[in-house]
């Protein structure tokens, strides 16, 4: 790990000012992803701003009947929250399908949204990776691609977003609230938060330099059967090959977001008009334009079959 300076902040203004003062600074909260990458010298911040002292650790109702989740709420606390379990079961299920108990105790809501890809070529510093070292190329293309993206990828990057939580939040139409260094606040719909790789895979979100996530808001509950089904190489503590997060209403209509297939949680609202026609109709439109490799073509079929299992479960 490279040496770095460190400070604790207790107000958003102090966090912003620290970010503005220090070149190559990073905010740290749970640290479970950032420190892992710092040990490998994939992340090399010169300064860490510890934001754990900010008062962003509450879950509260919004005036619109929804929920505001503080950026620092730990994954365990969010999954176990009574309102989340009752009204946003998809979010609880997705969180509990991810990582381990130890990691969920530490990982935060904002940190989970910002976690980086687990593409093995990103992690191996001897390999070319445009995300790790812009312009160096992508060794994953033509390499071992079983875990990698089947849709929305580019000639520069075929990595996937690893988050389970973000898939649920995409289906739940979450918004990400932020504060910029100049004090300006905004709410970013999650559909616009994560980027596709394009020519700049190193830029993963639409956050601006120094912009800090303060909360995630969920609209008022939409009811329905909320199911998160994750397919992985072992039964627990593994990243998804494919995951399906769905909210199915009694009349068969609903929403579907998919994980493990793209650089962001994958959802296409137009495909959801096909819900009552079954998994094949939805999946073919949802993954229209997919360009899988021989290694990961199975993911296209797996999305359809996982969705079929979810639709069957919803009827039970």
């Amino acid at each position: 790990m490279r040496p770095f300076t460190y400070e604790r902040v207790s107000t958003p203004a102090a966090a912003a000012s620290a970010a503005a003062r220090n070149q190559n600074a990073k905010f740290i909260a749970g640290g479970t992803n950032l420190l892992d990458l710092m040990k490998l010298e994939i992340e090399t911040p010169a300064h860490l701003i510890d934001v754990n002292g900010l008062a962003f650790d509450k879950i509260e109702s919004t005036p619109e009947g929804g929920l505001r989740i503080g950026a620092l709420v730990r994954n365990t606390a969010l999954a176990a929250h009574d309102t989340v379990r009752r009204d946003y079961g998809l979010l609880s299920r997705a969180l509990l399908a991810g990582a381990s108990g130890q990691l969920r105790n530490k990982a935060t809501t904002a940190g989970n949204l910002l976690q980086r890809t687990r593409c093995p070529y990103f992690y191996d510093t001897n390999q070319a990776c445009n995300k790790r070292k812009p312009g160096s190329g992508c060794a994953a293309i033509g390499g071992v691609t079983r875990q990698l993206a089947v849709i929305g990828a580019s000639d520069a990057c075929i990595a996937t977003n690893p988050s389970d939580m973000a898939v649920a939040m995409r289906a739940l139409d979450a918004k990400i609230e932020t504060v910029a260094p100049d004090g300006a606040t905004r709410a970013i719909p999650i559909a616009d938060f994560h980027r596709l790789p394009g020519d700049t895979p190193e830029i993963e979100t639409t956050l601006k330099p120094g912009e800090l996530i303060t909360a995630v808001t969920l609209p008022k509950p939409v009811g329905g059967k909320q199911i998160y089904r994750k397919v992985r190489d072992r039964a627990s503590y593994a990243f998804a090959l494919v995951s399906v997060g769905a909210i199915i209403q009694p009349d068969g209509s609903g929403r579907v977001a998919v994980g493990g297939v793209a650089h962001k949680p994958w959802r296409n609202e137009a495909a959801e008009t096909q819900m009552t026609r079954g998994a094949k109709a939805v999946a073919s439109q949802l993954l229209d334009g997919a360009k899988p490799t021989a290694d990961n073509a199975f993911k296209v079929a797996l999305v359809e079959r996982t969705l079929a299992a979810v639709l069957t479960e919803a009827k039970g």
Binding site: G31, T32, L35, K39, N52
Partner: peptide, 27 residues
Amino acid sequence: CDHGQCGACTVMVDGQRVNSCLTLAVM
């Protein structure tokens, strides 16, 4: 493993289990 994958470093911090390899002491 020193990367949060094996759990050998598990301790309790303020009553909660965590991977002590993936958190800085100064935090």
